[in-house]
Amino acid sequence: MEEQPGLSDQYRTASPWPVFVALGLTLSEIGVFIGLFPVAVFGLILFGGSIAGILTESDYAERPWPTLLAVGGILAVLALAIGVFQLPMSAFTVANIGEGPLFTRLVAVVVAGVIMMAMGGVGSLLERTKV
Rank of each mutant, 00 (worst) to 15 (best):
residue 40 A to F: 00
residue 70 A to I: 15
residue 89 M to L: 12
residue 48 G to H: 07
residue 98 G to E: 05
residue 40 A to P: 08
residue 97 I to G: 04
residue 76 A to R: 05
residue 36 L to W: 15
residue 126 L to W: 01
residue 62 E to L: 14
residue 99 E to S: 14
residue 89 M to N: 09
residue 121 G to N: 07
residue 62 E to H: 13
residue 84 V to N: 05
residue 71 V to Q: 04
residue 126 L to G: 06
residue 7 L to W: 13
residue 23 L to E: 03
residue 111 V to S: 14
residue 131 V to Q: 13
residue 60 Y to R: 15
residue 28 S to K: 05
residue 112 A to L: 01
residue 56 T to W: 05
residue 87 L to G: 00
residue 15 S to H: 11
residue 59 D to F: 12
residue 115 I to H: 02
residue 22 A to S: 12
residue 49 G to A: 11
residue 14 A to P: 03
residue 73 G to I: 02
residue 78 L to I: 14
residue 92 F to I: 02
residue 46 L to M: 13
residue 17 W to F: 15
residue 23 L to T: 12
residue 30 I to Y: 08
residue 87 L to F: 03
residue 26 T to F: 15
residue 33 F to D: 06
residue 118 A to P: 02
residue 31 G to L: 01
residue 52 A to Y: 01
residue 42 F to D: 03
residue 108 A to P: 02
residue 38 P to E: 04
residue 66 P to N: 10
residue 50 S to W: 02
residue 31 G to P: 11
residue 120 G to P: 02
residue 53 G to Y: 06
residue 77 V to C: 09
residue 23 L to G: 06
residue 96 N to A: 03
residue 115 I to E: 06
residue 26 T to I: 15
residue 67 T to E: 10
residue 8 S to L: 05
residue 115 I to A: 10
residue 6 G to N: 04
residue 38 P to T: 04
residue 97 I to V: 15
residue 22 A to P: 07
residue 19 V to K: 08
residue 14 A to W: 12
residue 42 F to C: 13
residue 69 L to K: 11
residue 72 G to I: 01
residue 4 Q to T: 11
residue 84 V to R: 14
residue 69 L to N: 13
residue 49 G to L: 14
residue 90 S to W: 03
residue 43 G to P: 03
residue 84 V to D: 02
residue 83 G to K: 00
residue 36 L to T: 10
residue 118 A to K: 03
residue 62 E to F: 09
residue 68 L to N: 06
residue 104 T to A: 12
residue 21 V to E: 11
residue 118 A to W: 10
residue 45 I to N: 04
residue 53 G to S: 10
residue 103 F to I: 05
residue 96 N to L: 01
residue 78 L to V: 15
residue 27 L to S: 13
residue 117 M to D: 02
residue 20 F to V: 11
residue 10 Q to L: 09
residue 83 G to E: 03
residue 88 P to S: 08
residue 20 F to S: 08
residue 130 K to G: 02
residue 92 F to P: 00
residue 119 M to E: 09
residue 82 I to V: 15
residue 53 G to T: 10
residue 34 I to Y: 13
residue 122 V to D: 04
residue 10 Q to F: 04
residue 90 S to P: 01
residue 93 T to A: 07
residue 99 E to H: 08
residue 19 V to T: 13
residue 59 D to P: 01
residue 30 I to Q: 06
residue 35 G to R: 03
residue 34 I to Q: 11
residue 63 R to C: 01
residue 9 D to F: 08
residue 13 T to D: 11
residue 20 F to G: 10
residue 15 S to M: 13
residue 41 V to Y: 07
residue 14 A to E: 09
residue 67 T to S: 05
